[in-house]
Design a protein around this nucleic acid. Structure first.
Lengths: 203, 203
DNA sequence: TCTATATGACTCGTCGGTAAGTTACCACAG
DNA sequence: CTGTGGTAACTTACCGACGAGTCATATAGA
């Protein structure tokens, strides 16, 4: 009995993977890819580092697994709303409401897709930005509709507006992370009030 | 002649410091604090790493020096606009225009103050967020005015709106970094058009 | 010759990643 | 019911690379 802690603990691989992904997603989402160390994830999960490498291969592999799990549900929800018939600002508000409801337990999931500290080169990173592109494309589609309603079809304008829109969602998720006591419903109501304040004033 | 490159090159300390700060600000602003290595800055400046440590003490000291130089002019410009009589969205647009004009040569300067990869603990970091707070405070003041015009004085609403507003500025600077051929004037005109598109549509 | 300017060659801690071995569980032969 | 071997789950102890920070030293110019 040279190593008192070695040997199986009876936790099946799939269960363990889910547990690791939960913790890794939280770490990546709150502290960013670069500032998250695999050893920290292992410690928080109560296991050792090599087990993570056994299951996910590398740090990038772990990150990618987080994206695959979180990105699937986020992108699907946005696509569901995009298939509806709301346009312009109404579509934006519906998307926001959907995101708040979907991410009520873990708002940090959103930050995974737009982590600027994640590696930007290499074949793995390409597949990692897949969901960011998928979300960005739908955002651009919605923005283009909004701009078309205002008679603006300038490609650069649409591109800039899309960046701003994604930045707004990002900011709201940021704020939510700083105010974890807020429910999804409260966030939705708040956004409605902010929108009202904007459109109520034409100084 | 054991070290062919040693000895002074005749560059006075103040000149060298300015040169180092220019390069460091660009690196910190574009790649973030964590992803920037002191060795890279030294290499781009054509000098050696110890010289940077002689002049700035540490990586955090170098970062702080960048903030002091950049933050002073940015905060001053925002304060100048705040002293004007514009309110609501008009004040926001004037602030944006001021920022574009001020940061025409280096839009990455803006990103220094909101770098999420910078250390968040320690006495040096406290002083590093000084400018972020100064800018944030003025932003909150402007937002509170806007909200008051709409009859909303909820503190949390104001807080959230301030975060969103700073996120919008951030996004625009981001977009500008991706489109370096755009002039400050073009950016200002573009923002006017985006604003028009927003207020033109009430679906 | 004295000082400001400058550098090559280190140390040290951290982090991604790996090798090799340990233990629990399970199917199955007797 | 009891070995017994195979496999899945898990760990300790390590390596190599890289980046922050330091020391001793070198040279140009007043």
């Amino acid at each position: 009995m040279a190593r008192p802690n070695a040997g199986t603990k009876g936790v099946p691989r799939l269960d363990r993977e889910v547990q690791i992904l939960d913790i890794a997603s939280e770490q990546f989402g709150t502290h960013g890819y670069a500032a998250t160390s695999v050893a920290t994830v292992a410690e928080k999960a109560g296991i050792s580092k090599p087990l993570i490498y056994n299951y996910f291969g590398s740090k990038e592999g772990l990150y990618e697994a987080c994206l695959d799990r979180g990105g699937a549900i986020v992108a699907e929800e946005i696509e569901r709303i995009a298939r509806g018939d709301a346009v312009g600002i109404e579509r934006g508000m519906q998307t926001l409401a959907g995101m708040f409801t979907l991410l009520e337990p873990q708002p940090h999931l959103w930050r995974l897709f737009f982590d600027t500290t994640a590696p930007t080169t290499g074949p793995i990173a390409d597949s990692a930005t897949l969901y960011a592109d998928r979300i960005g494309k739908l955002a651009e589609e919605g923005v283009a509709e909004l701009m078309a309603l205002a008679g603006n079809s300038d490609q650069l304008d649409i591109s800039a507006m899309t960046t701003v829109w994604l930045g707004i969602v990002d900011s709201l998720m940021d704020w939510w992370l700083d105010h974890p006591d807020q429910t999804a419903d409260q966030m939705i109501q708040r956004c409605m009030r902010l929108l009202d304040a904007l459109f109520g004033d034409h100084s």
